[in-house]
Design a binder for these strands. Sequence first.
DNA 1: GCCGATTAGTTGATCTGTCAATTAAATCCC
DNA 2: GGGATTTAATTGACAGATCAACTAATCGGC
Lengths: 152, 152
Amino acid sequence: MNQPNWLDPDELRAWRTFVEATQLLFDRLDRQLQQDSGLSHADYELLIRLSEAADQRMRMSELAEQTLFSRSRLSHAIARIEQAGWVRREGCPSDKRGTFAVLTPEGRQVLEAAAPGHVAAVRHHLFDQLTPVQRRQLQQIANRIREQLGHP
Amino acid sequence: MNQPNWLDPDELRAWRTFVEATQLLFDRLDRQLQQDSGLSHADYELLIRLSEAADQRMRMSELAEQTLFSRSRLSHAIARIEQAGWVRREGCPSDKRGTFAVLTPEGRQVLEAAAPGHVAAVRHHLFDQLTPVQRRQLQQIANRIREQLGHP
DNA sequence: GCCGATTAGTTGATCTGTCAATTAAATCCC
DNA sequence: GGGATTTAATTGACAGATCAACTAATCGGC
């Protein structure tokens, strides 16, 4: 790291294109969700993970892990969507430190209303733009990066 | 968009892997910058764009475009790093509505101190993980997405 | 069984980003 | 050349994220 090993022009171009593309993509998806359903992408992520969990519930710490939220962020976020009536908290009987976040029927409804539009947007802005081969390439590239960053 | 065209399992896996990988990557790079140089990635982006500009200066609106910041966000962000002494503002003589953001020598120093570590991190977490072929694939995929989102 | 260390989760202060409104100058165009 | 429109940039209020500090329960030895 002493004499910096600068990015060559191709790498720099690839890096900036990548940053720009992901930024634009996530911004667009966020906006779509927000406008069509009043959900932030964070909210959506939380609700969908809960909807997939057994009994519509998950321990806070597991939810944090799955969504890559910090515990603090998760506490605040759950407090907000609890306020909105989309989840409720339940204590864990076997570990009294623990809390379950539980998806409410209202939360499920909101999610079900939001999902088709969101999925359509992901499809439209991402998968429809890629060939099947590219989709596999992207999967492999992303997987490599993720693994290296310690998510095996 | 009526009967939702759900993602098939491969697509879902690819999507989640992609989201997770980008999240982890950007988080990691942010943290590295913050800890080693006290810069957020946003700060870094602003400083480097200015450092590349003719005369170390750029109009606010152009800087906003290049970095994909909203104007409001840029105003606030520049106010903060101006406070830190890394840029100053200068009025534009030919268009009195306009403002230039100008990199100060202190700003340049901070940037020069931050850059090698940041570049090394990008290299380590991204390019070193990819084959040259994959790097080209990523560039093309990102480019396709970016173009479709209206950045030709 | 009990004391230190760890783990689960929350809280409040602070920072950053967004949104809508505002100011001021330039441009359009008749 | 003067009134409507557009463009550049800022501002303030609010929403969301981070960070450090905190509480409370469990675990791990011994």
